[in-house]
Write a protein that binds this DNA or RNA. Structure first.
Lengths: 208, 208, 208, 208
DNA sequence: TATGAATGAGGGTTCATTCAT
DNA sequence: TATGAATGAACCCTCATTCAT
């Protein structure tokens, strides 16, 4: 133990090249699709040989899994953890939490540097079952978090809405996640406008 | 002989085999993903040789394209055309149109026998650009139809909502289309419940 | 016997469709090459189904063989038989025979309606050995005929040329057959000019 | 170890495998024809997997193109460049150039180790248009070289022959290139005899 | 005769992965 | 670590041929 710490200070593989591979692979997977992207493509984009790639990741599956894990991590860090930190003592804190979640979730989906999000949203099929289950569990946790938050807001508001938090959570997550299917950053709709629109729709309906 | 002559009055030029191929292919594409399904798989599922498959379709791409076209056709037939037929003279006809659209769109997405819908929603990447553009044009038309319908409802209601029909249309279509990603037919949420929940959310918000 | 002749007056397959198939196939084989032309291509060009084609010919090989046979027939009819008919009694008849052979052979190679010639010259490989041997025998006979003719001319002229009739025959046949590789009908060199040039070259050399 | 270090001073970046592939492929293409030779055949002859073959060449087309390029290179190196080096000052140098060209060209066609020559002469069809144009340009250059040489000889000789250098060049090239269609190395006609025969025919005619 | 459906073998090519160097 | 060569399975597709109708 001690010997290891001294004699081999850097036993674990360096993290930077792995990160760069994941970033590049995520970009390619997003642009062309996972199946249409070969390990050759990834290696070439990194100016690396195919063999070199396999020194960092055991398989293409593993790369996809790490991209998805990273995407979940980003979501948890930049949405859930931030929302959790909002002070619950204030009177309208709960509602602010929900509004913040909507805003942050949309920002994550729109963030152009986070290609892994789109990959996570789209590439469910190729992942081997065992790994898919892991990702799905985290996705489910996310929806649960949203569901609980919605329930809290309804409670705080004394809402008599027939809408169940569960369905509301799926609706919210669905309308936000679907954004990657149609949103063009150079279109007329800015990210901020989208946040306000979707917040309004979710809180007050679209035709009120 | 005579029996045949009576029972099968004429051997009309068979369009069926194409339909059966599309049905089977759609099922496999939905289950395993387009890229993960080989023409061999499709042929085997049809108890046909690979070569026999190519007697009916020129390429795997073409099959995918026809599946997607068919999915759009279903959507247009079973949602748009039905909605259009609702009598516009009645005082609340416009709102009923929108409610009907939500219901029918959800039913189409949930319909277990229409595998092509899911394929259309998911498999954008593999389609060659020229064919993809055709499908995308029809998808865009659909969203426009929804957008116009929402605008009408807002007008009829004298809505002062800051929500634009465009954003509302994307939100609605997104939350419905996303259903295929999580819905389990054997779960606790029935299709009809889902319709009511989503309608409420869209008309009055989720926490009102 | 008698019965046959009466009851089935046209026992043998009609010849016309076979001829048309051969003509069309020869054109396609010449344009695209034998291997690059599928039976489908041939059938389509004839506005015939693939199955229909096989009622007239047993195999693609057989078509190629008949094309080549026909090409040999043309050569024999339009070159050898004509040359043979030139009256041998006249004093310079032998030399005229050779000049005529050169002219007719070139005309056959250049004849735009006789696609089978080019096919015969080019497509040796695809023919099955047994059939190839048949064609090759006739090709050999042709060269022999040329060789004998050249020998006669040399004898009549009392030539002391060291050139053997055999080599001369190959040279003559080679330079004429090769024409299909480079000749463009719309170029500056007319067929008649080519005849005169090649005749001169063969009789008196190219730089005399 | 030490032995190795001495015997094989350095493992230079291997260009050999490509050369060996081209050599083997040329042999097979010549024997069976390009279309009748599969990549499997080539790989098997090299004791290589099909996939391994594609490590060195991108496509079958590319292999054919390189074979043909190499054939043209051989022709240019062993015929044109040698002929060009013949001293032009001597009085009969021009005629010697032409005689040398005939000899060297024939030797190239007869050379049993240069299979690519035959392939280049025969396999025009399979090459994609873009590549075919490149090869054809070099072929044309060759004929032009021959044409110019013939013109020079005629000039030097003060020839009054009606034979144009252009037609003479085609005739010469044709009769030589055609050799591959009939020549048997084990026949009675030696290469050297063939050279003398063809030279005589071309300079003085076959029946003079 | 003619058709259209079907077959089965094989075509060229791709690709994730392995491994000696 | 990194490379380049190699593998072997699979992929989409083509094609000569057959056969029931």
């Amino acid at each position: 133990m001690l010997r290891d710490a001294i004699a081999e200070p850097r036993q674990e593989p360096r993290q930077e090249p792995r990160q760069e591979i994941l970033r590049t692979a995520a970009r390619l997977f997003q642009q062309r699709g996972y199946d249409a992207t070969s390990m050759n493509d990834v290696a070439a984009a990194l100016k690396l040989s195919k063999g070199g790639l396999y020194h960092h990741f055991e398989s293409k599956d593993e790369i996809l899994f790490h991209i998805m894990s990273h995407a979940m991590q980003i979501t948890e860090d930049r949405v859930i953890n931030v929302v959790r930190r909002i002070d619950g003592a204030r009177v309208d804190a709960v509602e602010e939490r929900l509004r913040t979640l909507i805003r942050l979730h949309i920002q994550v989906v729109l963030s152009p540097e986070d290609r892994e999000i789109t990959v996570m949203l789209h590439e469910n099929h190729p992942l081997p079952p065992a790994l898919r289950r892991k990702i799905n569990a985290r996705k489910k946790d996310y929806v649960h978090f949203v569901e609980n938050l919605i329930a809290e807001v309804q409670r705080k508001r004394g809402s008599k809405s027939p809408v169940t938090p569960r369905a509301a959570a799926f609706a919210l997550v669905g309308m936000i996640n679907w954004i990657y299917q149609w949103y063009k950053p150079d279109g007329s709709l800015t990210g901020e406008a989208l946040v306000q629109q979707y917040t309004d729709i979710f809180f007050r309906g679209a035709v009120g």
